[in-house]
Design a protein around this nucleic acid. Structure first.
Lengths: 242, 242
DNA sequence: TTGAAGCAATTAAGTCATACATAATCCAGG
DNA sequence: CCTGGATTATGTATGACTTAATTGCTTCAA
């Protein structure tokens, strides 16, 4: 997701989006377009295009005579990749990480079960390759190399499920895994039992053992949630529905 | 989701979006903006805004000197509510319905388990109310009334999970349930066993029985998938990864 | 002859500024 | 309390200009 300078409206978007997602503008805040064009020193055209995109993400609502109103967080398109990334970069990162990990826990076991039934030989090979890659990089602070294999592994599982929506969550999982490594919400060395589980998932998928693949993958995601509890317990699960 | 005439760019969006989602423009097709403004008889401003939104959905990519290129379906934001609705209205509705039902099967049991642990009394009451409503409308071709309760029931489960991402899928589930009723991909009268399951889920959630709520909800979603197999078997599950 | 590198023309999107239209909101005036 | 114009910020249209990428031509070298 390398959307840098591609267009001036992107500049505005990459500035306003994260700010809104971080809660810098409480729900109900109104932004006037002429204020924005002055603030970012761009033309009306550019501001409007940025606003239209924010509107499509349900972050804001634009109404005549009143302005661009920030919508309450419950209405945001929390599945939009941009919104996910912006929120992960912002203040409520812990809660976001919890939500995403719970999502993973629900999706990945199901994806693994489907993958066991329909993965191609090439996908099985890739799975084994990355699982072994995780084994060989799990010691000696090779976190970056480990992360690459970890992400690739989960991407293959999701893609091999044959379900386009599961497959699309590959980016999300990548963000989560990258995020927890980059922000050190992870032990210096990966949990050895997690590494073993990945190897066993690869085996189960290759052997067409759907139930096994599902169960083992569930163990992985349960572990991920537990890890989150230990390392970032600043929020209680119950606290989410305000 | 009642986005009617709200803005001219919406008109363009509601025309171009469904067309692209339906595959009317194969991946790689280039649309020139001046052609679009002529076709829809609107100004550049309007066309550009619509294109920006389509771009944020990853349906198209706009590049200088080349035009607005339609992206391959694998890159689309298939979680975007608009994209979901457009695809459900289009040609590959059966496949879309399969993907979404598989998604439900993964999410809803997990949501029910969480709901059993954190649902408020009000939410438990709503659950019971809608489950009973389903019972009382399950006979005599009261499909519309039944649908209202069915949607509400699943919405409450997802909301009561306390996970914002699960909660956001309420609209998606509503679309699926509405779609299968409206397009008659459903028997004249709902399956009695499904109705009973909803009542039992409501009980399990009320009693805080997470495992039970999860298992019963899984039975509901498995039933939904089976129903789909029977009534719309035009595609094979395996056929999805081209 | 071929082909690779470089350069200039072309083209369509990107940006800006201005003018005008439209629909909510606000505020008298009844 | 209701009504109706004044107000105001977004919505739309248009013309002029900028920018970057593609095309294709030219040139030079192997």
């Amino acid at each position: 997701m390398e959307n840098e300078g591609r267009g001036l409206h992107m500049k505005v978007l990459e500035s306003l989006g994260p700010a809104i997602a971080a809660g810098a503008y409480p729900a109900g805040t109104v932004l006037r377009t002429d204020e924005l064009e002055h603030r970012f020193e761009v033309s009306r055209t550019v501001v409007r295009e940025a606003v239209r995109v924010l509107e499509s993400m349900q972050l804001v609502e634009s109404r005549r005579r009143v302005g661009v109103t920030v919508r309450p967080p419950e209405q945001w398109n929390v599945f939009d990749p941009y919104v996910i990334r912006w929120r992960l970069a912002g203040a409520d990162r812990p809660r976001q990480l919890r939500s995403l990990t719970a999502l993973r826990s629900a999706i990945e076991p199901a994806a693994a079960a489907l993958a066991a039934e329909s993965a191609t030989p090439a996908q099985c090979a890739a799975l084994t390759e990355h699982a072994l890659g995780m084994v060989s990089t799990s010691r000696g602070r090779q976190l970056t190399a480990y992360l690459v294999h970890d992400i690739a592994f989960h991407r293959v599982i999701l893609a091999a499920s044959g379900n386009e929506m599961f497959a699309r969550l590959g980016d999300v999982v990548a963000e989560v895994l990258t995020g927890r490594t980059r922000h050190h919400v992870m032990f210096p060395d990966p949990d050895p039992s997690a590494v073993t589980l990945h190897v066993r998932v690869a085996e189960a998928v290759r052997e067409g053992d759907a139930a096994g693949a599902e169960r083992l993958t569930r163990e992985i995601t349960v572990g991920a949630m537990a890890e989150l509890e230990v390392l970032a317990p600043e929020f209680d699960s119950e606290a989410e529905h305000a």
